[in-house]
Amino acid sequence: MAELIKIYEENPSPKEIEKVVKVLKNGGLVIYPTDTVYGLGCDITNNAALEKIAQIKGVKLEKSNFSFIVADLSNLSEYASIDNQNFKILKRNLPGPYTFILPGSNSLPSVFKKKKTVGIRVPNNNICRALVTALGNPIVSTSIKDEDEVLEYTTDPELIAEKWDKLVDVVIDGGYGDNVASSVIDLSEGDPEILREGKGDVDIF
């Protein structure tokens, strides 16, 4: 049974954040709000949890394209190689509704070692950034898609909790989510390449 935990974005309760972090540290799966759609995530250092997410998404873990949610740009070099030009682009646009594809660094967790690139997100949402900060590691994340052809993403946390009840441990109710995913910008080959136009403005690249 997934526990539905209400957390307010304006001022996330440290007590509730700590409760969710405990679940993440124990290998639990959590659905949480971002500045775009709701995401499904786990602690990047927990291989069993990563396998569970890959299984839910029907992909092989080593071939998965999950994003890494980080709180800010300070520890990014642990996961991605960034030159000055790319750092300026990231600094200018994050936090925000973008996923940036960057070359992976040599110190990626072993399960991602073969990945040449990684997707990095710093959402403009206090809840998920507080989670990552309290956890001390990035959260590996994937958007929760819907089978509904009209609405690709479920926006109501109570409906999400109903639907994902047996698959995850916690659903954070951070209010209604968006139904437009992040824009995906590839910075791994030099000049920015737009892979998906989503919520973030892509005309600036």
Rank of each mutant, 00 (worst) to 15 (best):
P138M: 08
K63M: 06
F205Y: 14
I89L: 09
I69W: 02
T117M: 03
K52H: 07
E162A: 04
K91N: 15
N124G: 01
E18Y: 09
P97H: 10
L29V: 04
K163F: 09
V180S: 10
L131T: 13
E147T: 12
I101V: 15
G28C: 01
G136I: 04
P97W: 11
V171W: 08
K199C: 00
A80Q: 09
K22G: 11
N47S: 05
L50V: 03
D35C: 01
S64K: 07
E51G: 02
S183H: 06
N179V: 05
I89S: 07
K145S: 15
P157D: 11
D72E: 06
S74Q: 09
Y176C: 01
S141D: 10
A130R: 13
P123A: 03
Y38C: 06
N126G: 00
P123T: 10
N86A: 10
L73N: 11
P103V: 03
P33W: 09
V184P: 10
C42W: 03
T154P: 01
N137V: 00
L167W: 03
L24M: 08
R129D: 04
F112E: 06
L108M: 14
E147A: 07
A48R: 14
A49L: 00
E152C: 02
A134L: 01
V30S: 02
E16H: 13
E10G: 05
Q55W: 08
G200F: 11
N47L: 09
L131Y: 06
G104W: 06
G198I: 10
P103C: 03
T36W: 04
R121V: 05
D72L: 02
F87E: 15
G190T: 08
D83S: 08
L90R: 05
L24S: 02
T155Y: 08
I160S: 08
K19H: 13
F100N: 07
I44L: 15
L76C: 00
V111Y: 11
V132Q: 02
S182I: 06
G175P: 07
I144R: 09
L24N: 01
V180A: 03
V140F: 00
T154R: 14
S13Y: 06
Y153R: 09
A2C: 12
I185C: 02
W164H: 05
A134M: 11
G119F: 00
G119M: 04
T45K: 13
E152L: 07
I160V: 15
T99Y: 06
K88M: 08
I7F: 13
V202L: 08
R92Y: 06
N86H: 12
T36C: 06
P109N: 05
I7T: 12
N106I: 09
I172G: 04
E51V: 03
W164V: 11
Y176W: 09
L40D: 05
V132H: 07
S143D: 13
D72C: 03
I204C: 08
V140M: 12
A48G: 00
D83C: 04
F205T: 08
I101E: 07
Y98M: 12
S81P: 00
K22Y: 13
K88D: 14
Y38K: 11
L131G: 10
I31R: 14
N26R: 14
